[in-house]
Design a protein around this nucleic acid. Structure first.
Lengths: 220, 220
DNA sequence: CCTCCGATTGGATCGTCGTTCCAATCAGGA
DNA sequence: TCCTGATTGGAACGACGATCCAATCGGAGG
């Protein structure tokens, strides 16, 4: 007996594995990425995967680095640092919007290379903006944390919208719940329901970046 | 046969369960909260817990609501809305610092009551700040997202510091890694290593809030 | 061409998790 | 007193990440 499945001929590599993992994540969200799904897609076994990858965290980090590296790698050479900051931020937003699992991962393990690249990029542009030395560190931290915060929200919303049907219906449902709150107890949220329904995520994100930049400008 | 353990006499309730869950989370982090640990601590079975709680997400959300409600419940009546915003923000920061699992949870399921309270509180204070209507929604979103971003970072750092020994050593290790990066490839991160080692998390968080408030002030 | 050894692969297996399910038990109204 | 619905305790299930090892491959040295 002992007829095992034929051994694969094309070499397995970390890159191939990471690419497959990213595809699974894009297709079915974080919950869909299991080693069982991965072995099925790659037509291999657990051992082969663990030979190239330390564990699931390592795999997620590598996939995240690949996505973020792709975004920041497109070196946008912009004359105006202010505009470059908006471009880079929006690039990150769009990438995380397209791959919500990246947002959750950036959030979960912030010491990995991906976040380092983000800090470097944003910090460098703040230097170009002539932010004074003392405030530079704080400003970079604030801006990165803002981006991460939005990233997480996006990921959560994507998880929910995927489970709940389309985005439109989901947003409407949340807005309806907000609107139905007691205006005396929740005056702000109650009246914000309309804007929640109509708002554009990208525009609101950029508005937040602009708010930051306006605050930074007062430091000069 | 069939000698089962004696049945508990004092009634189990959702509140008791949530309190026990919070204690486990505080003591051992998110990984420590399992239904098995919970049954052991409460001296009961799975069924009893599931009778009061829908599932683990529900349990985490309830524990989070309890903590956030406690923070925001201390109604800080401050004359100056600007100062009140700083107080509330810092209160949230400290709460998430003390209970890192709250940060991760706020991030993961943002439609639950806890975040609603935060929006209401911050939005209300922005209204008191005379932020013009159109910008109000964007400003509140930006500030809340910033707080959530910091919350997540804090939670991640706490997870790491707990695994890595004390916070001091962990921060030093990260700073050393930053400092050892090639200054040509990572100029900003390389030179920021010193400030990373010496910085105070609370102060940096407040500096970010102030940056926001400065930006908002330009809208008036 | 053969031999052999380290690198690589496939899959059985383990322990743990969240969750389900149901018999056992209790409290209190009929 | 009896009965019924609410509550409890714990066995069992399926899925997960991870480990382990026999099987296999490919190329360096003879």
């Amino acid at each position: 007996m002992a007829n095992r499945a034929p051994r694969r001929t094309d070499g397995l590599s970390k890159e191939v594995i990471v690419q497959a993992a990213a595809a699974i994540l894009d297709g079915g969200g974080e919950a869909a990425l299991t080693f069982r799904a991965l072995t099925a897609r790659l037509a291999t076994g657990y051992g082969a995967i663990y030979h190239h990858v330390a564990n699931k965290s390592d795999l997620l980090a590598a996939a995240t680095d690949a996505v973020i590296g792709g975004v920041l790698g497109d070196a946008v050479v912009e004359a105006e640092p202010r505009e470059a900051l908006r471009t880079v931020s929006l690039g990150l937003f769009d990438a995380i919007d397209a791959h919500p699992w990246v947002g959750a991962q950036l959030y979960r393990e912030p010491w990995r290379p991906a976040l380092l690249e983000i800090y470097e990029r944003i910090g460098g542009l703040l230097v170009a903006l002539d932010v004074p030395g003392r405030a530079l560190f704080d400003a970079a931290g604030a801006l990165v944390n803002y981006v991460l915060g939005v990233a997480g929200q996006n990921a959560a919303n994507a998880r929910l919208a995927a489970a709940d049907g389309d985005r439109e219906a989901f947003l409407g449902a949340v807005a309806a719940r907000w609107a139905s709150l007691d205006p005396d107890e929740y005056p702000f949220v109650h009246q914000a329901a309309n804007q929640l329904r109509e708002h554009d995520d990208r525009e609101q994100f950029l508005a937040g970046v602009d708010l930051f930049l306006a605050g930074i400008a007062t430091l000069r």
